[in-house]
Amino acid sequence: MLTKGVPDFSEGAVSFDEDGHLERGKTPTVMNPNDAFALEAALQTRVRHGGHVSAMSMGPPGYGDVLREAMESVYADDTYLLSDRELAASDTWATAITVSSGVEKYREEVADVDLVFAGFKTADGETGQTGPQTCWALEWPIVTHVIALDIDPDERRLRAKRLVEGDVDEIETVEAPLPCMVVTDPEFEPTYRKAAHRLTHKELRAETQERAADHDEHLTTWDHVDLNLDPDYIGLDGSPTIVSSVDPIPKAPSEREATMIDPDDGAAMEPVLEELQPFAGGD
């Protein structure tokens, strides 16, 4: 039994309101590009081991389209949207609380969960925090920067190759018990070296195309009441992070040796983001 958490989505052409909050309603919504890797990991796990895959996201009602996109990519069986006016303008912390409540509700009411996959940082926030924070809220182990994954269903353990400190040169292999949360790295490459897996992949794709055509049938929406969440802890009120302003590119302090990094080059940006992460607030 797997689920895929898709906690946050946005695109480059974003709009901010006067207070500097992201206006999700005015921003064209697409799936977080970094979630594609998480989706690949979830899909690979499903193709190899079978099971049920659900995609979950928090956002306004328009996020249905994002979830349909997620369904198409991960060949999800169904999708869950955590959507409520009270949930608007959540920062990563509030999002994590909400998403973890969504996962808890899912486990209580839908099915037990072995794995939660999350993408490597969202394209809008670039904090890389929602995944770990959700996991903390769930009190599960977490494996981050995953580039290859293998599940032993009998032992109920997961083995993963991960990048140490996000460094492409250093790779370690770790094990963790299920249930577990997996945060994939953009370096994640799904591998299908078995003909049977490729045939399953093809079959799932055909099935999903039909399912995605009437996605609304497979979409469940939960609001804060469904999730039993106190409005004080979620949404804008529950968001301790204040992003004072958004600069296009973080510049290196001039007294130090400056290195030019193309902000569109995800791999090159990684070390930068890694450095910035501790200063990005939240604690």
Binding site: R48, D150, R159, R193, K194, A196
Partner: peptide, 15 residues
């Protein structure tokens, strides 16, 4: 580890 889940000499078989 084999992250591919492949085992040596245990090949897939089709008729």
């Amino acid at each position: 580890m084999s992250a591919n889940g492949s085992h040596e000499n245990e090949y897939e078989h089709y008729e």
